[in-house]
Amino acid sequence: MDKRPELGDFLRSRRARLRPEDVGLTHYGGRRRVPGLRREELAQLAGVSVAYYTRLEQGQSQNASDAVLDAIARALNLGEDERAYLHGLARPEPAARRRPRPERVRPGVRMMIESFGDVPAMVIGRCTDALAWNPMAHALLAGHLDFDAPDRPADRPNMARLLFLDPHTRELYADWRKKARDAVAYLRLAAGRYPDDPNLTALVGELAMKSPEFAALWSTHPVGDCAYNTREYRHPLVGALTLSEEVMPLPDDRGQRVMVWSAEPGSPSAAALRLLTEVSAETADRPETAPTRR
Results as ranks from 00 to 15, higher is better:
A154L: 13
G192R: 02
A174K: 09
G192Y: 01
F164M: 08
T201P: 06
A215G: 06
P198C: 08
T169R: 07
K210W: 08
D182H: 08
D175L: 02
N158C: 08
R177Y: 01
W176D: 02
D182Q: 15
N158T: 08
P167V: 04
L163G: 09
P212D: 04
L165T: 14
L162H: 02
K210P: 08
P198Q: 09
R193C: 04
E171H: 06
Y194D: 13
L189K: 14
A154D: 15
R181F: 01
D155W: 02
D197C: 01
D197F: 04
D175R: 00
L162T: 00
R181E: 06
L172M: 12
Y186F: 15
M209A: 15
A208M: 07
L163N: 09
D197P: 03
R181P: 00
H168N: 13
K178G: 11
A185M: 08
D197H: 01
E206N: 03
A180Y: 03
M209E: 14
N158R: 05
G192Q: 06
D196Q: 04
A183T: 15
A154T: 14
V184S: 09
W176N: 00
G192P: 03
S211V: 12
R193D: 07
Y186V: 01
D197S: 05
L203C: 11
A202M: 01
S211F: 11
V204E: 04
L187Q: 07
F214H: 05
K210L: 15
A202G: 03
N158Y: 10
R170P: 03
M159K: 08
L172H: 06
T201G: 15
K210D: 13
Y186T: 05
K178L: 13
F214Y: 10
R188L: 01
L207M: 11
V204L: 10
F164C: 10
L187I: 04
M159G: 10
R181N: 02
T169V: 12
F164V: 02
D197Q: 03
A180Q: 03
L203V: 06
V184Q: 08
F164I: 07
L200K: 12
V184I: 07
T169C: 11
A185C: 12
P157L: 14
V184T: 09
N199G: 13
R170Y: 11
Y186D: 08
P195L: 03
A160M: 13
D166Q: 13
R156C: 01
P157M: 05
L203R: 06
R177N: 02
P167R: 07
G205C: 00
G192N: 02
P157E: 03
L165N: 09
G192E: 05
A183G: 04
D155C: 12
Y186L: 10
D155Y: 02
V204D: 01
L189I: 11
P212K: 10
D175Q: 00
Y173W: 14
R193M: 11
K179S: 15
